[in-house]
Write a protein that binds this DNA or RNA. Structure first.
Lengths: 329, 329
DNA sequence: CTGTTAGCGCGTTCAA
DNA sequence: TTGAACGCGCTAACAG
């Protein structure tokens, strides 16, 4: 393993000089900088990230907190996009990233979690799919001991940035398109679960649309479950002329119910997951770019670390019509 | 942040004594051990894993190398299971784990990759879904600079353990069950892709069965693609009376083709993925427990680090009949 | 059995 | 502009 010392010797300079070149300090002459860089190339030197992390608290690591248990809209595919986006961007920015599943921190008190993270030199955190009941994580955000970026939850403070699409508007848009396409009037809305922040926002968008278009609106709690959505659709779809779902998974459940009932109703979903070989008909959905959202989240953490205050970041989305033959892979 | 020194002061002992207690050294008196442990509890101390890693090369980290691009049998769900299993087990064994996607190391020469890993204090590697064309990774295994565990690929040396189910036997079993159930004779076998190690093994199992049962066997390359499998089935299914697929995804493609053709043929798959709301009929499949495989992989890395030689580990599987109503979630 | 000491590889003062 | 020296938190010899 080639260390910074060998590079220094090879280049005939001091260790600290190499360090300064590595970290882009300004006050280094071009001559020495090039000497050092040549030595680095030649020795194929890569700085030891462990040592760097230990030495400077400033350049700590970022924890990605995922909850794969929460069977919400979060199909594994979405998590993989999140992970990919975060890891790629982290590599780009030269940041170290640690993946943490909530199962690994379950049962910890806020203090324990705090210690646990500090002990790993973690300074920044990205929280995906926060629930209203995650009191420990909520406390973590509140205490501002770490730089946080929260995806799809409304938290902003000096050290916390919120990121996500505008769920209220997106739900409004996709529902409106679906309803206008088929001139519908009686909406069955299958909502998410109560402990999720997006659920309320999406419902709000649906309600606004219903008000504006003077629609009849029946709201049922689908809990982001395919099965529950299916049962709801089985029970109520006949008397309604359109089904709006707060997630693609529930939309699939609803569509399956329609097949069983042998009736047709326009359906729309949310998320834009592509692993849907099972969609036999077309369906409108809100497509979010989870990869971009996650990349941006990492950039936001970096921004916080660099001293900028937390803020609200709204990501773009698009309304798309998915069709079986387009999405088979 | 509580450091080991504070604990030492609090307990009235030397730093090294605390360290010895932490790492379970034998020659510590019960009295001091308890004093130290009390101090640890009281101060809610968690050792800094970064510092520990830097200090002792022995306790390095483990890299998980995943290739989400490879659209093989590897649905994201499988990767999530792998990740979960690995992270949970790593936490259990107090090992640090780093997630690496192949996109992050693409284009590196073997030397660069070697440096890159060393620079992160990585000593062990778990490679999921290795392809025959990954010359860089293959070289990594060959050079034995790291402790490797390879999932579903036949590599064993002093520092490399291979782990996975017996694909040859599993393919044999699931095909046999499917064929016996319906008294079939003419098999359409949709194989994986040539660059995968499991493809050959599964095909071998199918061929053995065909020999034993004196079946007519037509083999086509499906490349683990739903679409390709669908096209193959569209073309050949009519003249065959059973379709055996080397992955669930391809089985789904084949089933969709059968629906289009409006004919029935028994189909069997491989993997046991559960995200299949789209399976309208029942289907036999080989169910692998990816979580267990991954946990075991971590244990195997630990075993290698502890000085044991590499070996072949065969994991159990089961043949299951999946049905729509069982797997909706 | 316990404490002292010397690093691990790097970042960062402060002199020079 | 450069380099010597110190320290991050911990482990691992060694000495007592």
């Amino acid at each position: 393993m080639v260390s910074i010392r060998e590079v220094a010797e090879h280049a005939g300079v001091a260790i600290s000089t190499v360090s300064k070149v590595l970290n882009g300090y300004p006050n280094i002459s071009d001559v020495t900088r090039q000497k050092v860089q040549a030595a680095i190339k030649e020795l194929n030197f890569v700085p030891n990230s462990i040592a760097a992390a230990l030495s400077s608290k400033q350049f700590g690591r970022i924890a990605l907190i995922l909850d794969p248990k929460r069977q919400t809209q979060a199909i594994d595919q979405i998590f993989m996009q999140f992970l990919l986006g975060a890891l790629d961007q982290a590599k780009e920015l030269n940041l170290e990233v640690v993946t943490i599943f909530t199962s690994m921190i379950a049962g910890m008190t806020p203090e324990e979690l705090n210690r646990h993270l500090h002990s790993q030199s973690i300074v920044g955190i990205v929280i995906y799919s926060l629930s209203k009941e995650d009191t420990v994580l909520l406390k973590l955000i509140e205490e501002q001991d770490f730089f946080c970026v929260v995806v799809d939850a409304p938290f902003v403070n000096k050290k916390t940035t919120a990121i996500g699409v505008d769920h209220e508007q997106a739900q409004y848009d996709v529902a409106k398109k679906t309803i206008l396409d088929d001139h519908c009037q009686n909406v069955l809305y299958i909502a998410g679960r109560r402990d999720g922040y997006v659920t309320a926002q999406r419902l709000k968008g649906m309600k606004r649309l219903a008000r504006e278009m003077e629609l009849s609106l029946l709201v049922k709690q689908g809990n982001f479950s395919e099965r529950t959505a299916r049962q709801i659709a089985l029970e109520y779809a006949k008397k309604r002329d359109v089904i709006v779902c707060a997630s693609d998974l529930m939309a699939i459940g609803a569509m399956n119910a329609l097949i069983d009932l042998d009736i047709f109703r326009p359906v729309c979903g949310f998320d834009g997951i592509t692993l849907m070989g099972y969609v036999g008909k077309q369906m409108n959905t809100v497509r979010q770019d989870f990869y971009s959202i996650s990349s941006q989240a990492i950039r936001e953490v970096k921004r916080l670390i660099d001293g900028q205050p937390g803020r609200q970041v709204t990501m773009p989305y698009s309304i798309v019509k998915m069709h079986y033959k387009d999405i088979i892979c």
